[in-house]
Design a protein around this nucleic acid. Structure first.
Lengths: 247, 247
DNA sequence: CGCTATCTTGACAATCTTCAAGGCCTGTGG
DNA sequence: CCACAGGCCTTGAAGATTGTCAAGATAGCG
């Protein structure tokens, strides 16, 4: 299936490894499982790239030759129906690992929301690397399991939550300080209202109206200029997200 | 974390292995990755059990001490909201592997629909076995990835498909002969209309009405006595499921 | 400074839900 | 063997949440 040997190349490893060593995504990505000393192995097969906003770099149904790890920016992952209905299955940011496939074909598309930096890896060469560093497989299993847990949570949201509950769930999940529901937290949203709608199984109008409601209820404030949201009532929003709210 | 050694027990392995060797689920389950000759290793840690219909054998949020493999019957996997709203995330049958957990707690509940047979495995002993048979980890990764693909497909269904499209998708997925859309196919449903509703993000009434519609449109026939459905127009149903149908 | 994207808001429509009642099937007991 | 009880399923009528269509507001960009 794969042919290129990854070992017998004899250029200076320190130079090759440089872009991986310096990569700020490494600490939180699969790349972190490769020991620093052997990072040149990874760097040799990583093909870094940068794409502009709105570039589709993974297309559902196409042959899945590569894996991707995101190093900067935000991408939306989505599935389409023939008439254009879109379901966003998730957003990918720094450190995320993309390229789930079935029978050699990608199962979703990925599009850059803003400028996105990523590394491509040929699946064949990647497999050879995983064989060398078994801890990578364990790490990937953890990633996939975490994603599966998130996917099931999203099924609950899409199948059973109201528009308000969906928005509350979404906003809380965007909050990087999820753990401490203290102080007002400011969230910067990379995605448009339309993206949020397609992620939550709603329309743009419903998203907009619901956000306005939450603002009127003094649970959040919104700044359209920089697409930021401040959570005023984290406790209340959390209760609403969990379906514990009265209305 | 785990302590019990799994190797030094000296009773006749052929006897211990018996219930695994004879198990009809082994061919399609993780258990199949353990070589037949070493099946006693697996049999020694497998704790077979049988539960009656409506027994909840996994509870969301409880400590996840065990894994499960289903050997017979059908179980529903679900998540609940505090007010009782339920989302069924999947159905498990012979060969399926259960017990996804996060931070040591189950992320969904599982309940027997009819009489369900399964094997329990302590997570600690299981890990020791996986260490011995690395192909098990690969197999588990494949399972989890397949489930993730299915979960994302279900997100598309829950977020963007109409009631008719949901029912069509569900019925097609139940058809064991999915590959060949020929001849009328008979499907035996283990679950109630209520289960189907909670799986598709609808109400019982909508499920019932939509099934009636499909019957009037001569796409299926339904037998309430044995809970069977016959697919008359597989092509049309498939088109509807994929969102290619006109109405 | 106007052009275009995105977002917001309003009025109306539709799908799906809710509430209610009746029918079907099974199993149990007289 | 038949009657009755209890699930489960189906159907109807009314209601509500969300979607659709349309127009206006705001902000970024040349």
């Amino acid at each position: 299936m794969n042919s290129m040997p990854i070992l017998p190349i004899t250029i200076d490893a320190r130079i090759v490894a440089h872009h991986c060593e310096a990569c700020s995504a490494r600490a939180i990505s699969v790349c972190g499982t490769v020991p620093t000393l052997e990072l040149d192995q990874l760097a040799r097969i990583a093909r870094p790239a940068k794409v502009a906003a709105l570039t589709e770099f993974i297309t559902e149904g196409e042959e899945s030759l590569d894996f991707f790890t995101i190093s900067s920016g935000t991408a939306r992952l989505f599935k389409l129906l023939p008439d254009g209905r879109r379901q966003i299955t998730g957003f990918a940011t720094k450190g995320d690992f993309l390229g789930l496939s079935l029978a050699g074909r990608f199962v979703y598309s990925a599009e850059a929301i803003d400028q996105v930096g990523f590394c491509r890896y040929s699946r064949g060469k990647w497999r050879a690397l995983v064989a060398l560093y078994p801890q990578m497989e364990q790490f990937i299993l953890d990633i996939v399991m975490t994603e599966l847990v998130a996917a099931q949570e999203q099924m609950l949201l899409l199948g059973r939550k109201t528009a308000r509950e969906r928005l509350a769930s979404f906003l809380i999940a965007q909050d990087p300080h999820v753990k401490e529901p203290k102080l007002p937290q400011r969230i910067l949203l990379a995605m448009t209202r339309n993206d949020i709608a397609d992620y939550l199984g709603l329309t743009v109008e419903t998203v907009s109206r619901t956000i306005s409601q939450l603002r009127q209820d003094a649970m959040i404030t919104v700044n359209r200029a920089d697409r930021s949201v401040v959570i005023l009532d984290g406790i209340g929003l959390r209760a609403m997200a969990d379906g514990r709210s009265l209305n």
